[in-house]
């Protein structure tokens, strides 16, 4: 398999190879024992270059957050490798990880839950600087004020508590905190999903602006196709723990190849009545099965309108065509 092909080399900031995360399912009884496993992530590979936005899109439970947690080394991996800036960090301990942690930061969906309600906003933003002992108190204070300005908050808001801010402003606080240590990679897990559309637009614009100014790379996770289409350079579509298709944003949206990608695009209505009227009705039936007992063969085959011979028994692997587009579907066999 040529999984490492896309952009392997200098530009790769993060490379994930054949990552699997399986959770044990314990049976009842006096002595609980493992009776199965949830294959939350199963053989996922991708890479992210410096300064680019790579998105993972898919429906709930497909393994997006688990992938992110594994990249952040907050979730043990069952198998596979995680490379950051040329080094295999898969098994690094806390001491070795310390400098890496500075360079990978996160923004989560719920700014309410991720900000300590008893800390003032200035202290929240400065905390990573203190943990990593960056500068003296004065320097940290100045840096905090700069960060607040950077994300569109007034520095004199530093003395307030999180509950005094709206949802959008709280997400700005999370972003300022994430940027404190000048990371190279920011993992955004449903970072704009809880926001109303006008506020969401403000935050999306901010993220794109910061990327240009600071050269950040984003691992952007979302279930919202229009948001992903808007912000991404490259996209991976996940279904039941696996990447079923990946490619550059425009390729993927204008010519989706995997039947699941096609169904996903057909299901998401566009804010344009003329397009909607022209569209045939929605094809995909059923709901995703449980990752605890994933279907054999192609995991999508029970719902796939195009399923044929090999689909129910053989698992299709992700086959690259060119340097960025890949699809895992028996309709697109590897070219000999």
């Amino acid at each position: 398999m040529n999984l490492q092909r896309p952009g392997q080399g200098d530009g790769d900031l993060l490379r994930v190879e054949d990552l699997s995360v399986h959770f044990p399912v314990m049976g009842g009884g006096l002595l609980p024992r493992r009776i199965g496993s949830v294959q939350a992530v199963d053989g996922v590979s991708f890479s992210i270059r410096r300064g680019e936005t790579f998105s993972i899109v898919g429906e709930s439970g497909c393994g997006k957050s688990t992938t992110a947690m594994a990249v952040l080394r907050m979730q043990a991996v069952t198998s596979g490798r995680i490379w950051f800036d040329g080094q295999d960090i898969t098994t690094w301990g806390p001491d070795a990880m310390r400098p890496v942690r500075r360079r990978i930061q996160t923004i989560f969906q719920d700014p309410y839950a991720s900000l300590n309600p008893r800390m003032k906003v200035g202290a929240i933003i400065a905390e990573p600087l203190e943990v990593h002992r960056v500068g003296d108190a004065d320097a940290r204070h100045r840096r905090t004020a700069d960060l607040m300005k950077l994300v569109g908050l007034l520095p004199d808001m530093a003395e307030r508590y999180p509950h005094e801010f709206s949802g959008g402003q709280r997400q700005r606080i999370s972003i300022a905190r994430a940027l404190a240590l000048e990371p190279d990679l920011v993992v955004c897990d449903e970072a704009v999903s809880a926001l109303d559309v006008s506020i969401q637009a403000q935050i999306l614009n901010l993220l794109m602006e910061l990327q240009e100014r600071l050269g950040l790379a984003y691992l952007f996770i979302s279930h919202d196709l229009s948001v992903v289409r808007h912000i991404s350079d490259r996209i991976a579509v996940m279904y039941l723990g696996r990447i079923v298709e990946t490619g550059r944003r425009d390729e993927l949206f204008s010519a989706p190849r995997h039947p699941y990608t096609q169904a996903l695009l057909a299901s998401a209505p566009s804010a344009d009545p003329a397009l909607e009227a022209a569209r045939s009705s929605v094809a995909l039936a059923g709901e995703p099965p449980s990752p605890r007992n994933p279907p054999p063969g192609c995991r999508f085959h029970p719902r796939c309108p195009a399923a044929f011979g090999p689909c129910s028994s053989r698992s299709p692997s992700l086959v690259f065509e060119g340097d960025s587009a890949a699809v895992a579907c028996h309709l697109f066999p590897p070219q000999a």
């Binding site: 959008g168 969401q200 637009a201 229009s226 912000i231 566009s270 344009d272």
Partner: peptide, 24 residues
């Protein structure tokens, strides 16, 4: 108009800024 400008479109063009409504 602001709401529509803020909505990312599936059929939209390349990585552009969204029109936004300031404030809340």
């Amino acid at each position: 108009i602001g709401l529509m400008g803020s909505t990312p479109r599936l059929a939209s063009g390349p990585k552009a800024r969204l029109a936004t409504i300031p404030g809340q």
